[in-house]
Design a protein around this nucleic acid. Structure first.
Lengths: 222, 222, 222, 222
DNA sequence: TATTAAACGAGACGGTACGTCTAGTCTTCAG
DNA sequence: CTGAAGACTAGACGTACCGTCTCGTTTAATA
């Protein structure tokens, strides 16, 4: 689970009172509740501990600080993303984009996600935690979607694995980046109309790029 | 100028000592220096004031808080973006995306930009300030690029103004979002190779979407 | 007048706009009003200036600081003390003590007086200002009272001037000190009963001390 | 002890870390040191905390503000007053007055005492604190001195308790007031000569007043 | 009458201290 | 040893005044 805080002394724990498993759950839930009410910058660990009915020491024993706690609290939100088969690549993309936008409409995600990304620009360990808990975890959706499109014959198999990986990363950057920008920066709703327009550009671009895999870039745009 | 902090009583200012213009410049420069050294979360206004050789009150007289100050300090960074004519739409896009990526590689932009976006999710006034100082300000690049592409005959003129505006917003979301996600979340370099791949998808997608302007979505992606 | 603030450049002033005499009056009145409302420690010179309808610079041009301003504002209060002839030394003392107590019951005196005395323990110039504006100024009451008592035959003339001066100082310390302590420290009313008791001790003590002027101290107390 | 700052939650405190007893001592000593160096008005709680090697929060947890802290710091100084038996009422009084004057010669007492008295004119709680910690605490000296004088036959027992209490208060006002006025306002030394003169007046006055207890006031002064 | 020099209001300036808040650690007692 | 409670050090917060300064504007005595 993405929310597992720290394995230190929790695994081998032989002697003494064992750690309360309920505390973890309560703390993460309290963190999300505090994010909703206060946002990231006014969220304090003392307040989270109080909401969770837990002492501050208990919290600090499990998470090194506010950033890591918020990453874990937010990561759980993205685990509910899924990719139901809607019959076509475009429809699949539209579906997952709408789900993603729905999560980003929730205040606990809005507040927390960008803040930890901002913090991660100066904290490599935090960036790794975000990548492991959120980004890489959801990249499965891209891979699954492509596999499904290939099975349908909508896309041809990539010529080599390196290109395939690069393309998957690119798609993820485009999809996640565009949706986040639409929702948080432009602050406009990522509604059906916008999602259709976006998907049309993306799917069209992928087809064009895949077709021009030989390097004659730009030709398809003429 | 994007850095003009507050117009209150500074314009009509007849009576009393006028505000020092040098202070504004020094404060914004000090803010960027502090962002480089400390990042957003460890940046303090007291420290910025000290660096700028200015009293804290002088700073608070001009900006209501850390967020607004950082927005203004970062906004100036993006004013150096330009769109030199490189001969084709794809080349123009690649050029501006590389410039954008270069700015996002600078620590004062990395630290500050995402943090204020995060804060803006709970502060409408701040979001408006970001939009006015950064987002809308740079949207000129999209409009200019499209006009140039139309002049070259690479793109057809949009059928109606509303569609044109929607498309421009979409392009901005995709470009800005993807580059930001690549640089800050994926934390991979937006180098020439990545930019070429991204541009191929975008230009191809635009062509396909423009072609299918009649609403038969997905057709061009089949 | 005790409230004349500073003679610097006000006397010889040939050229230039002369200082407003109304400002002095307004400032001292505003100071007393602020003492009543806020007390010494919360009184600020900016507020006094505002109340007086005067700029801060105007105030600082006349007084070096809060302490000196308050001394002058309070000193005026004590100028209303007088020593009407009530027929006997005891009655005269009772009269002036009651007047003194009445002034100390007014909040502008209570707040200001002890505060500047406290400050004067670390500021010799301030102590001199207090002595000149308040203490020595009111010592006239002691001298006048003794002269009257001698005229009545209640007290014998002092054997030599030095002893006379010492006794006058002692009386002033005892009277002023006791009344201040009663009113401000004990915070009990210096009403008729208390004043009668105090006067009886003082007059009795003076008679005994004068009688035993030969140095056989303690004899009269046996 | 007079220096006990706040009993809140410190007594019953079962749970949680107990308050450091050493901190109290260090803070009061640091306060006196700061009074000596800086005086009351330039004393800051931040500086006191630094001197005491303690965080500001620790200080504010124990005392509500500067006034209360100074009262407690000064109160300890007066606990060293004592009334050794010198054989006669006059000698006893001279002894304690000299001790009192010696304390008032110390800068930590000079600065602090009058300042808190000044503040107490606008703060009833502070006045009560002063009365409890300093005034009433030292009134024992008056009572003890009178008892001793009665035992010696120097004074007759008071006719009723109310009169006795009133007289004790009056003596305290006269003694404390006169010495304070001599030391702080007149700023002259309360040396042996002054003390002898003062004592002669006081003892003589007491004898006269006690003799005329029947109400024929003023008779003894004629 | 015109000049001139100081006083005036307004308010920005560099500072200092305020009293509060939060971070993250430490110390006690209870289970 | 875990956990609740809460005191601890450290330091930033945003505000309030300090006393100084820099403006543009009176205002009287001088020339």
């Amino acid at each position: 689970m993405s929310g597992t805080p720290s394995s230190t002394s929790a695994v081998a724990g032989r002697a003494g009172r064992p750690r309360s498993a309920a505390a973890d759950t309560a703390i993460l839930a309290a963190t999300r509740a505090a994010l909703v009410e206060l946002g990231w910058s006014r969220l304090t660990l003392g307040d989270v501990a109080t909401r969770a009915g837990v002492a501050k020491t208990t919290l600090y024993r499990r998470w090194p600080g506010k950033n890591e706690l918020v990453v874990d609290a937010v990561a759980e939100l993205f685990d509910e993303l899924s990719l139901p088969d809607r019959g076509s690549l475009a429809a699949d993309i539209e579906g997952v984009v709408l789900q993603f936008a729905a999560i980003l409409a929730r205040p606990e995600a809005r507040s927390g996600l960008m803040a930890v990304v901002a913090e991660s620009t100066r904290d490599d360990a935090l960036r790794e935690r975000i990548r492991a808990s959120i980004v890489d975890r959801q990249k499965r959706l891209v891979l699954e979607g492509r596999a499904r499109a290939e099975a349908r014959g909508e896309l041809s198999s990539p010529s080599d694995p390196t290109t395939a990986a690069r393309t998957a990363d690119l798609i993820f950057d485009v999809v996640a980046g565009a949706v986040v920008h639409r929702c948080l920066v432009s602050a406009e709703p990522a509604d059906g109309e916008w999602v259709r327009g976006f998907t049309r550009v993306l799917v069209g671009g992928l087809a064009a790029a895949t077709a021009g895999d030989d390097g004659t870039r730009g030709a398809s745009a003429g």
